[in-house]
Design a protein around this nucleic acid. Structure first.
Lengths: 182, 182
DNA sequence: ATTGACATGTAATACGTTACATGATTCC
DNA sequence: GGAATCATGTAACGTATTACATGTCAAT
């Protein structure tokens, strides 16, 4: 499970609560990872049991109490071990490409409608990545030049991949219009 | 679950066994879907219960008996319904990009080693997609022109995406060599 | 003799989503 | 008055992987 390692990564910058971790994940790595709160909370308490984190309860007036998690030495070691470990390709499950694969059993207008819908989804994603996300991230990391360098790299990965999708979708739509019967 | 729908797709071409389905999946859609036999067998018997398939036992001499699955009208209807249904983006979990995101906490040589390993994985994939896979698929579909048109499209998607990965990895490796400290 | 292809499955475990449950405060 | 933010969790369910289990035949 690398949710564990993503959380260790964020907690290596700063101690924080599960709720805050969710916000960081959504803001910064959401284009290649996501996690719900109902997955984060149990994972954190399990990590505490494993000795990767320690937990401290902060009693707040006028707001709910919160549990602040701190990374331990064992946690830092585990993060570093994982960062250096060889990485396998993730298993892909692209339902969309299954539909294209069986596109021969669909009418031309139906498959074109699918392609156009998916094109819109990817165009929206690209627009989002090219929007204010990067600047926001760079601001936050103003005093962490080296970090923001790598953050920018991951964003560029997302942008490149989205561009590849969009290119393929646009070309394929033209091909289907020209060559596909029906 | 779209494993169900992928299986329906293949069974809409031909009746076959779970073992054969596994082979088709591995040969033709393995770059965007994969399924183990221990997932396929229970799924098939569940689909039979749901009335999407019927099952026929073939008693073979000198070989194990086999269960041949046939798609029903309900199965064809469900496949067509699913093919036309809007498709959501799959949730991505790219552990590799998490490692890059926290690359700031790694030494330069360690992150470069990661990048080069991943580059090799993607180059191998690209080589595979550009190898004899396509010709093989087109041969099998010799009498199914329209099908092989869409099969080729999905392969091109894989090739485009791999090229995008490789480009990003190559550029990023250069950037890290030039700009990253340590 | 042993590996690989053929053929089917169960059980345990891991990972992830959705629904359910609670409760305060702040902003519109 | 109602929605959004802050804050934490449990339970049920769905999906997927890994390990375990069995057995034949053909080729090396």
């Amino acid at each position: 499970m690398s949710l564990k390692h993503a959380l260790l990564g964020f907690l290596s910058y700063n101690s924080m609560t599960g709720y805050q971790l969710k916000q960081y994940v959504d803001e910064s790595v959401q284009h290649f990872w996501n996690a719900s709160l109902s997955q984060i909370y149990p994972t954190l308490s399990q990590m505490e049991k494993e000795g990767l984190l320690t937990m401290e309860v902060e009693y707040q007036e006028e707001k709910p109490n919160r549990k602040i998690y701190h990374i331990t030495d064992a946690g830092r070691q585990e993060l570093q071990r994982w960062l250096r470990e060889p990485t396998n390709l993730p298993s892909v499950r692209e339902a969309f490409l299954i539909k294209v694969f069986f596109g021969g059993t669909m009418e031309k207008e139906d498959i074109l409608s699918q392609m156009n819908q998916y094109l819109k989804l990817h165009r929206d994603l690209l627009a989002m990545y090219q929007g204010p996300v990067l600047e926001k991230m760079q601001q936050e990391a103003a005093n962490l030049e080296r970090d923001s360098f790598f953050w920018a790299l991951t964003l560029e990965a997302g942008i490149n991949l989205e561009k590849a999708w969009i290119e393929w979708l646009e070309e394929s739509i033209e091909k289907i219009k020209k060559y596909a019967t029906d």
